[in-house]
Structures are given as C-alpha cells and as structure tokens.
Design a protein around this nucleic acid. Structure first.
Length: 295
DNA sequence: CACCAGGCAAGCC
DNA sequence: GGCTTGCATGGT
C-alpha cells in the first residue's frame, strides 16, 4: 500500500483486500452512508470522514492529513492486518470459506469505538438495518456534539455521561422502542465505571463477554458483536439468523442449535472466527439470501 | 390486517 | 438448563 498527500487529501494506492462498499455494507457499521455523487460519508471517533474508492482501486480520504490518517483512520480500517493471509488460512481445506472469502474479499473488520458498538448492537436486536441506522442517527442528532465539516453540521456519538443523565421520556425521541431502557441502563454502567474499556480489555475473552452480558439488553449475540467490532476480539463469531442459516446449510445440511454452531466455529476457525463470520454474513446476504434456505 | 426484522428478558417447566 | 412469549416501532 502506498500513500500520497496532495495537500488536502490522502490517497491510497495498491490497497489490497480493501473494498469500501463491502466494508460499509457487511453490517458492522451503521454511521457511514453512500453519497449520491459516489463515495461514503460518515462519523467515527468524533470526526466526519468522506472517502471514495476509484475504479482503479485507489482510495481517497478527503480533507485528511497524514497525521489524521495514521492517527485515526489507519486503525479504524484495520490497515495493519494482512487480510490476504487470513483468507488463505481460512480457505485451506474449506471450499465454503474459499468461496465466501473470494466473494467478499475486500471486507475489513472496522475497529470501532467500544461504547458506540455497545449501543448500536443493543439497538440492532430484533430490528432491521435501515431502522437501526435511523435510531442511531436520531440518537446522535439529539444528544451528540456538533462536528463541522464541509459547511455542514454532523454529530458525534453521544457519550455514556450524556446519555446516563437522560430519562425514558427524553430518549423517546429516538423511537428505539423497548430498547430505550437498555440504552439508559448501559449508559449508567459505563458512566459510573462499573464497565469500561479498560476493564474489558484487561479480561480474557470469556470474562469480557460475561461482563458485557451482565448488561440488560446484551445477550449472547450482541456481546459477540461488541467483542468483535468494539474490542477487536477476532475469535468472536456472532451468530445471527443469517449466519445460522448459511452455516447450517453449507457445513451441516440440517438445522443445528446455536450452541452447536458456536462450538463448530470455535473449533474450525479459532482466532479467525470473526473474519469467517464477516465473509459468511456478506456472502449470505449479497448472494440473494435464497441460496441460504435449506432444501 | 398479519407478519417480520441481524435478540433479549422473564417466566415457565 | 432448555423452551416459549412479549416486546416498540416501522415496513411490506
């Protein structure tokens, strides 16, 4: 990968295993949206970013200095990880993963802010992606700090402190439904330090997951999403309905319990479970869905 | 109108 | 422990 700064924008050329559409459309991130004129605009780590991938594969980070690129976006996009090697390891003796990893070969697991992933995936339960995005957008618009970019105002993701001061009435404007009380409960636990990134990062996978699941509104699946997207625990293999269906179909040929599937993923993918999950998820969703139905 | 959406908690056995 | 059911809201 080569980087170049033209005085305003950072331009990446020769970025391997990197596809912006796949990255933002594999369901891990809810705050980046496609622009009508091409590219994407979103907010992360309190900053607005416009980015675009050209036909030749080059990626432009608009209005981004080298300092900001290496200080923020390099890690966000997990640039330091060799996805080619990961795909090769997953594809050894596994034609299912070989196909899925080719299909979504440009996916990267974004390293997102912990607190944002906690709330985002609490909101995701029993919900669909457009509405998840809408609820998160209203949450940020109402309670997040202003960010000025390109003559417009964007909003940062609101902190646990800000949200913990809200009442159920206050937060009803985001129309999160029954999830509203879970958001406020989690905000209080993070604001008073009962749970923190520091604490979670000091724990091994199973203890960190257990602590996350002590929050009302965080069950097995949401905890796995937070582990993977918010804590970089790449062994996590979140099992949602799509993953359940495609794993059953491609690896078992019959219905299985979540417990069985989790044990299977741990045994088969090990520390690469999270990458395997993303390739499978993208493949299951993009390939039309109907190929995931059991025959 | 019924049914569902990237689950979860609570209440049952 | 495993199983069912209600859950807010919005879309089809």
């Amino acid at each position: 990968m080569n980087t170049k700064y033209d005085g305003a924008n950072m331009i990446l050329s020769g970025a391997e295993d990197f596809d912006l559409r796949q990255i933002f459309d594999c369901g891990q991130c809810f705050r980046f949206n496609a622009l009508p004129e091409g590219g994407y605009l979103g907010v992360a780590f309190g900053r607005a970013l416009r980015t675009e991938q050209l036909q030749n594969g080059d990626v432009i980070f608009y209005d981004t200095s080298p300092e900001e690129f290496y200080g923020v976006w390099y890690d966000f996009f997990d640039m330091g990880t060799d996805y080619g090697a990961i795909k090769r390891r997953l594809s050894e003796n596994d034609d299912v993963m070989k196909g899925a990893a080719e299909y979504g070969g440009g996916i990267r697991i974004l390293r997102q802010e912990l607190w944002e992933t906690v709330v985002s995936f609490i909101i995701s339960q029993s919900n669909n992606i457009p509405r998840i995005k809408g609820i998160i957008e209203r949450l940020c618009d109402n309670f997040g700090d202003e960010i000025f970019y390109g003559g417009k105002i964007y909003r940062a993701f609101p902190s646990p402190e800000v949200l913990s001061a809200l009442s159920l009435g206050d937060i009803s404007v985001i129309r999160a439904g029954f999830r509203d009380k879970y958001i406020l409960g989690a905000a209080r636990l993070f604001a008073d330090g009962t749970i923190s990134g520091e604490k979670l990062r000091s724990l091994n996978d199973s203890d960190a997951k257990r602590l996350l699941m002590s929050v009302k509104g965080i069950g097995n699946k949401v905890a796995d999403c937070v582990m993977l997207f918010g804590l970089g625990r790449t062994a996590a293999f979140p099992i949602d309905v799509w993953i359940k269906r495609i794993t059953e179909e491609r690896y078992f040929g019959s219905e299985q319990s979540v417990k069985t599937l989790a044990a299977f993923a741990e045994e088969k993918f090990g520390d690469l479970g999270g990458y395997a999950q993303q390739y499978l998820f993208f493949y299951a969703r993009e390939d039309g869905g109907q190929r995931c139905l059991l025959t």
